[in-house]
């Protein structure tokens, strides 16, 4: 029973944030259809915000795709972690891969037995998918109706959403040091490189610090 409750509460709460993404898409001049397709097809929050964030900052499609894809690499590790548990084949594997995200993995791994872990993965993955897409559409339509994004503060809502995703990860000295270094590097490079490139350049910091331990 509690796996259903866990899955539902996570799905609904996270799904609500979809409205922030919907609004961010419109603020960055994506259409309602394009914004909704990102939620339907890409379906990974931080990566979706990255696509609209990089394009909104004037970056190229290549920078947007690269930044978004690097942010999505953790989903591969989630898939790797879950594979022996889910043991999926064929169409179910395709569906399972699409809903392999922070939340479905988190709820699955926090259950106590294998049967609840499998249920937690599917309930949460499908639940987030439904609510996230519904609220993306609501947020996009709402933002469209508002008109000028700056007049409603939507241009500040985008970096605030990134900050909200970042904040819980800043758990120790090393992570805070990298956050400060990435902030400084991206701003220092901004006047000299095409928009979007300063952002993706910060991946080098992660590789450097991760390599050195």
């Amino acid at each position: 029973m509690s796996v259903k409750r866990d899955s539902f509460s996570v799905s609904f709460t996270v799904g609500l944030y979809g409205s922030a993404f919907g609004a961010a898409g419109i603020a960055s001049h994506f259409s309602v259809l394009q914004t909704c397709l990102l939620s339907l097809l890409l379906f990974s929050g931080a990566s979706q915000f990255a696509v609209v964030g990089v394009i909104g900052a004037g970056g190229s499609a290549l920078s947007a795709i690269a930044t978004s894809s690097l942010l999505g690499t953790r989903n591969a590790l989630y898939g790797l972690r879950l594979a022996p548990l889910l043991k999926l084949k064929g169409l179910k594997k395709i569906a399972g891969a699409q809903i392999t995200i922070d939340e479905s993995t988190g709820v699955a791994l926090s259950q106590n037995n294998e049967s609840d872990q499998i249920k937690g993965f599917w309930y949460t993955g499908i639940g987030v998918y439904i609510f996230w897409n519904f609220f993306t559409l609501m947020g996009a339509l709402g933002a469209k109706a508002m008109g000028n994004p700056s007049a409603w503060g939507l241009d500040a809502a985008v970096p605030a959403a990134f900050l909200g995703l970042l904040w819980p990860r800043l758990t120790n000295f090393k992570t805070r040091a990298i956050a400060i270094a990435a902030t400084a590097l991206s701003l220092a490079l901004t006047p000299f490189l095409p928009a979007g490139v300063p952002i993706i350049s910060c991946a080098l910091l992660a590789i450097f610090f991760g390599w050195c331990k």
């Binding site: 953790r74 992570t175 990298i178 400060i180 990435a182 701003l187 991760g210």
Partner: peptide, 18 residues
Amino acid sequence: RINNLIPIALLSALVAVN
């Protein structure tokens, strides 16, 4: 380790630039 640090570096840069 690199995988854990990539979101931190990229999200920080996205906050700053945006």
